[in-house]
Amino acid sequence: MFSDADAAALYDLLNPWDPESRPEDAFYFPLVMAARSVLDLGCGTGTMLRLARERGHTGRLAGLDPDRAALDRARRRTDIDWIEATADRAQPGAGFELATMTGHAFQNLLTDRAVHDSLTAVRAALRPGGRFAFETRHPQARAWEGWSRANPDDHSEVTEPSGRTLRYWHDVSGVDGEIVSITGTVALPDGTVLRVLTEDLRFLAPDALDAHLTAAGFEIEARYGDWARGPVDAASREIITVARRPA
């Protein structure tokens, strides 16, 4: 009824990459355009890298993601390297100037081992002095409390190219320490459910995150609590990090 390819297409509709209107995209896009080589981890359908190429990026661009259906959409653009793999399989010695992990993809790393192995692999894929930019939701903001069918702000409605209208919302199915389990429901306007997507997210506090970065050999170059580059404080909803591989 609703295939993996449909889910990948829905992701593009729900998450258009637009640095002119979305503050998170406006944060990352100048970093990407200024770097001669970029590795986008958890690239999904590749919208950020595809736009970079369209806007004139002439350097090496590579996107890595384990989702084959998403990469099938990304591969419509053939002048970018698309790699089916998880972050811990990033190629060592690749010499990228910048690595990114957008869309809160870092929160899909659920264990200390997964975080360590991924950060270590990312560091190895960067050139000396290369940077890794990513974000994770700050646990103090308890974002998951707003992820509910009962919250009208959590509902999205999109129209597919075929003209079919779809509705999408989240629900939390469980909270276990740092791990929040959620479902995303895709339905028709009359409420007919087409598919339920499941996901687990880890909410790491800043001190725990910094310990992982240090253990993997990164130095923290910059840290922000919002997309306007404000400090991390008691009101922050994000932990936005630019880490550097020492030269």
Rank of each mutant, 00 (worst) to 15 (best):
P23F: 06
Y28M: 08
A99V: 02
I239W: 03
A70K: 05
V193N: 09
D72Q: 14
A124C: 09
D117P: 07
W147E: 04
S236V: 01
L41K: 04
A26Y: 01
A187P: 02
G230Q: 08
A216E: 02
P206W: 02
N151W: 06
F27C: 05
A8L: 05
T198S: 09
P139R: 01
L14Q: 05
D112R: 10
L31I: 07
T100E: 06
P16F: 10
R167W: 09
W169H: 15
G225R: 02
R195H: 11
G130L: 05
R89A: 08
G130F: 02
G56T: 09
R77W: 05
D200Y: 06
T185D: 07
D25S: 09
H155A: 15
V122M: 02
A216N: 07
T159N: 04
T241C: 10
W169Y: 15
P152C: 05
A124H: 15
G95L: 06
F134C: 01
D176W: 04
Q107W: 04
Y168Q: 01
V193A: 05
G93R: 14
W17T: 01
D226A: 04
V158K: 01
G63D: 07
P92V: 10
F106P: 00
M48P: 00
V175P: 04
G191W: 13
G225S: 11
P92S: 13
R223A: 10
R36I: 13
A222Y: 00
T45W: 07
I80F: 09
